[in-house]
């Protein structure tokens, strides 16, 4: 469908905006816009208000960079969380994923990406210095690296490890191995190879 075929400039602008979303092409964008047009104007208003509010009022936690409605996020300000543990993640998405496991009671640090010089992302583009500051302020016992198992994730691990290795903190990383509930037969050999190399003591592997 070409640009000329839109019957209204307003429609075209709306489609244009929607198609900026990841994974949304012009066709899908048009479908969404037409859907909006069929809604009551009140619903449309509340939709746009939500988005405007998000754009204007959203804050990032000044401690961990997590998304927040207040200067310090709910996790960082909670008295029930263990401030001695910091889990380092790439983005807010991973905070939400780890939170939904209910297995972690420490704090987070959102880096805002991983180091990838090819894509022009160097250490200065990520909040690494801020992490080092947090550790320097004291009270941190362990820094847990929870980045993707890609070469870029590993490079970021190595880089941060160098920055923190002289500090009195334990530096750990997520376990890599056989996925829970997976049959060994269907585990890919790279993962299985690593799982054998990084095997764990049986009593430490029992859940709970």
């Amino acid at each position: 469908m070409n640009v000329q075929s839109y019957p209204s400039k307003l429609l075209e602008t709306a489609v244009e905006e929607f198609s900026k979303f990841p994974g949304i092409g012009r066709r899908s964008a048009l479908r969404l816009v037409l859907h909006l047009l069929r809604q009551d104007i009140e619903d449309v208003d509340s939709f746009t208000r939500a988005i405007t509010d998000l754009g204007h009022n959203v804050k990032y936690c000044r401690v961990c960079n997590n998304i927040s409605d207040t200067d310090t996020c709910g996790i960082c300000s909670s008295p029930h969380r263990d401030a001695g543990l910091i889990c380092v993640v790439e983005s807010i998405k991973e905070v939400m994923m780890i939170e939904s496991t209910h297995q972690f009671n420490g704090l987070y640090h959102v880096l805002g990406g991983v180091i990838s010089p090819m894509e022009g992302i160097g250490p200065a583009d990520l909040s690494i210095e801020k992490l080092v500051d947090r550790v320097n302020q004291g009270g941190v016992r362990e820094v847990i690296m929870a980045l993707s198992a890609t070469t870029e994730g590993d490079t970021t691990n190595f880089y941060i490890f160098k920055k923190l290795k002289d500090k009195p903190v334990l530096f750990s990383t997520l376990a890599r191995g056989v996925a829970f509930g997976d049959e060994l037969e269907f585990t890919d050999e790279v993962t299985l190879g690593r799982a054998i190399l990084n095997r764990v003591k049986f009593d430490a592997s029992i859940p709970g």
Binding site: I115, P117, G120, I121, G122, D125, T155, Y159, K162
Partner: peptide, 12 residues
């Protein structure tokens, strides 16, 4: 966009 750093090189 990425300034040269020995630390970064070493991490790689």
């Amino acid at each position: 966009h990425v300034s040269f750093s020995y630390d970064l090189l070493e991490a790689i």
